[in-house]
Design a protein around this nucleic acid. Structure first.
Lengths: 208, 208
DNA sequence: CCAATAATGACACCCGGTGTCACAGTCTGC
DNA sequence: GCAGACTGTGACACCGGGTGTCATTATTGG
């Protein structure tokens, strides 16, 4: 394999670099406005104007106004799924799920000052909240297949369709994460990791 | 307690009756159009015209186009919460949650032919799906407080804030319901109750 | 029958989002 | 150096969901 022709990952290329710069500029400007007037009250035209461009061009960088806020959530989901895939094989599904969140939890707690207003906005603005919940529910479909090896085979079910128990486990873990995150937002004293531990062990001990 | 002076429930009043009739008419007309062309492809103006009224009047009966589809979900959530509250006290939280779904499960299976296209549409149309997920997540806040008596007191937590473990249990049960419902849509052969049983017992047995 | 009240239609408007077109820049190969 | 091809951009019109307003029309109650 030659070098010189790597398509996207190792060669950002000037095109892609400027594109990323403009996206970052738009995000920064948008965030300033959101903090000042809220998400809904800020219009796309304002954001575009603040970054010195037309509304039409804004939509060439973000597919929607919500995408500006929630776009990177897709990658975060992939990171969690990757972390789950790399957990040792002797961990149970539930343990592995708990550990798969470690990176994200650490990241959030590391600069909580940046994440707290973001997450708070995600809960307060209705449209944003809906999209957030939906996007995060799609993590479930990324995580579920990774659990197959950690769960005994299904009793009677057909093997061709995806095992709903895996989806349920992944979904329950994500619910725990969401609940812990919410409690963490409401009570700045406690730390997120402890909350997640408490909530996930509650599921394992209180479900029979 | 006298009778004769119940304010709204037993005395619909002609005003409210016609209002309900118009709402029903709009829903029927809308559903016909949705089935023919899909949710997004059907415009509010079409629905209103089909029911013989202006677009403006449509929004006097439904706060949004999505509300026409998801409006009753609010009441369904209340029904589930009521069913949960009436479960015998000796049932565990998880058992009570499972049983609280019985009414809804029976209702769905009773006329599956009506629910199947509805639920399928909720999953296929993106905007609708987002609102659905969000609305159903609000069931969590209705169910969680009912579980307090079925769960041992928290270890170190403050008593003034809501117990996140309750929200996690309710949320996990709702996730199970959602997963079972999805599997039921994909595989018309199995019955919903059995799927819900399988998935909820999977959570209780596979979480350690 | 008449006055207060509610429902309606018509119209203008906002905002998120898209399609289109013409124009500028840049990057190629000749 | 130049003709392209490709890309990014602004301008404009347009769509559709949703709202504010106002004048007109039922309905209701006295």
């Amino acid at each position: 394999m030659h070098d010189m022709d790597a398509p996207q990952v190792p060669a950002p290329g000037l095109r892609e670099r400027t594109r990323r710069a403009v996206r970052a500029e738009l995000m920064a400007e948008a965030w300033r406005l959101f903090a000042a007037q809220g998400f809904e009250a800020t219009t796309v035209e304002e954001i575009a104007a603040a970054a010195g461009m037309s509304k039409r061009s804004f939509f060439r960088y973000f597919v929607s106004k919500e995408d500006l806020v929630l776009g990177n959530l897709e990658d975060v989901g992939r990171e969690v799924a990757a972390a789950l895939a790399e957990r040792p094989a002797d961990e149970s599904a539930w343990q592995a799920l708990r550990r798969a969140f470690d990176g994200l939890v650490a990241e959030i707690e590391a600069d909580a000052d940046r994440f707290r207003p973001l997450l708070t906005m995600l809960r307060s603005e209705p449209g944003l909240h809906a999209s957030h919940v939906e996007k995060r529910q799609r993590w479930q479909t990324m995580l579920a297949p990774q659990l197959a090896a950690r769960v005994p085979a299904r009793a009677g079910g057909s093997q061709d369709r995806p095992d709903p128990r895996l989806a349920a486990l992944a979904g329950a873990a994500l619910t725990c994460f969401d609940v812990a995150q919410t409690a963490w937002l409401d009570d700045p004293a406690t730390d997120l990791a402890a909350l997640l531990d408490e909530v996930m062990t509650a599921i394992s001990t209180l479900t029979p």
